[in-house]
Design a protein around this nucleic acid. Structure first.
Length: 436
RNA sequence: UCCCCGGUAGCUCAAUGGUAGAGCACCCGGCUGUUAACCGGGUUGUUGUAGGUUCGAGCCCUACCCGGGGAGCCA
């Protein structure tokens, strides 16, 4: 007997197969059960006639609640009445474990309740589709870098100090010392780039900021490519190539999942290179004159960083991600290289996702001059001793280099059209959620 | 850390300061084409916690707990 998966049913029309999975939903009509079965790969309607399977099996399935684990043997039929177009005419089956009172019904639930039951909620259609897209995004990113000669070199998660010296970090005991959970692998990626040329890190990142917005998690996954012999333009080109390539891969391989998510794919089909590039100054002028915020509390103040409403205004001007570059050096990290054409600016770029989702990438060309970098570290009052190894990268064969950090959950949420990043990761960690 | 909103049945919600309700879920019965099935019957409460005002509090007041939305910070 052929054991198969629901996503492959179209290859087995007319044949008898075995399916293993769980009861997603059931409606019964006298001597007939319509059973929606899911197996992780999809959902199939299974028709159980009492006369075909016998009284005992029929009763067992009548008593099996939502999410009972089951095994069925039946013939695959094409039937327009079945969701998905195929159904199983069941000949025999058994209930492995009969579940009762499954907490998540096909009816509506609030987000708190669903998050409290995240370990079960993952079985529902929307999380299922989101996780399948997340996987496709991960694979697309890894393939993209692999094809371009990048080596994956992951950074440590325990670190001795703040990478950028700004965010609040999680402290953990580390034998006789205190360690911090990494907030960025970038400085390590720079060291790796000097060794391997083109590298990327792909790992978890931690921020102890008490953020409470749809864009923040305390634990999230970040991809940080770093290239030796690269300028800001090279960094921007890499970013747009990567994002467009990832979106194309998802469109090619995850159409069904995007349909479950009710995503407007025409919006995604517009994500092709080149992406618009505007300077911070140009963006500032747009914001200063924008009628929605001019003269309000949200009014943009020149020289300051963009707030969430500002990012939304800028990103809504375009049908694809927009790259805002050359921010004021004063509001950006110490390691970003100054713009030779205007030393008050730095060679940085933020990529704002389309449809108003905000920043999904932050990157820059790095300061490669030892003296200037040291001056920045002292000016920011960072612990100079802790940065000696980083300064070594400028003492021994310094070259122009740069890279960026991509937030995986923000990218997945953007592609899926999901409002909140907590739904773009299997088990989200937020300020008020450490369980399940 | 700051601002706003919420917490009532397993879930989603309603209830002018005056007897705590509905839909769904669940249980029993009926039905061989359901798609959020349908029809008949049934079960379901420490109104987040503690105190206060009042003849009387789910409702008003205070504190606390829990959560949601936003700001800041950032990916």
């Amino acid at each position: 007997m052929t054991v198969t998966r629901i996503e492959l049913l179209s290859q087995f029309v007319g044949q008898t197969v075995t399916l293993r999975g769980w009861v997603y939903d059931r409606t019964s009509k006298g001597k007939l059960h319509f059973l929606l079965m899911r197996d992780g790969s999809g959902i199939a309607q299974c028709v159980i006639f009492k006369g075909n399977v016998g009284e005992d099996v029929f009763q067992a399935f009548a008593a099996a609640g939502q999410e009972s684990s089951i095994e069925l043997v039946g013939t695959v039929k094409a039937d327009a009445r079945a969701p998905g177009g195929f159904e199983i005419d069941v000949q025999s089956g058994r209930v492995l474990q009969s579940a009762q009172n499954y907490p998540i019904t096909p009816k509506e639930h609030g987000i708190e309740y669903l998050m409290e039951h995240r370990h079960l909620w993952l079985r529902s259609k929307k999380p299922w589709a989101t996780m399948r897209v997340r996987h496709a995004v991960i694979m697309a990113i890894r393939n993209f870098f692999d094809e371009r000669g990048f080596t994956c070199m992951d950074a440590p998660i325990f670190t001795p100090n703040a990478c950028e010296g700004t965010s609040t970090l999680f402290e953990v005991p580390y034998f006789e010392q205190t360690a911090y959970l990494t907030q960025s692998g970038q400085l390590y990626a720079e060291a790796a780039a000097m060794a391997l040329g083109r590298v990327y890190t792909f790992g978890p990142t931690f921020r102890a900021e008490k953020s409470k917005t749809r864009r923040h998690l305390t634990e999230f996954w970040m991809i940080e490519p770093e290239m030796a012999f690269a300028t800001l333009d090279d960094v921007m080109t890499l970013a747009e190539d990567m994002l467009s390539s990832v979106v194309a891969h998802v469109l090619k391989t995850r159409r069904a999942e995007l349909a479950v998510l009710e995503r407007d794919v025409s919006k995604l089909e517009k994500i092709v290179t080149p992406f618009p590039r505007i300077t911070y100054e140009e963006a500032s002028r747009i914001l200063l004159d924008h009628p929605d915020i001019k003269g309000t509390e949200l009014a943009f103040k020149p020289g300051e960083d963009f707030g969430a409403p500002h990012e939304t205004i800028i990103s809504n001007l375009y049908d694809r991600p927009v790259m805002v570059h050359r921010y004021p050096a004063a509001i950006k990290a110490f390691y970003m290289k100054r713009d030779p054409a205007d030393p008050t600016k730095c060679l940085s770029v933020d990529v704002l996702g389309s449809e108003g989702v905000g920043e999904i990438i932050g990157g820059s060309q790095r300061e490669d001059d030892l003296a200037l970098l040291l001056e920045r570290i002292r000016h920011e009052k960072l612990p100079e001793e802790a940065f000696q190894w980083y300064l070594d990268l400028r003492r021994f064969g310094s070259v122009p280099h740069g890279g960026f950090g991509l937030g995986l959950e923000r990218t997945v949420a953007w592609i899926c059209g999901i409002e909140h990043v907590r739904e773009a990761i299997p088990f989200p960690r937020t300020i008020y959620r450490l369980t399940p």
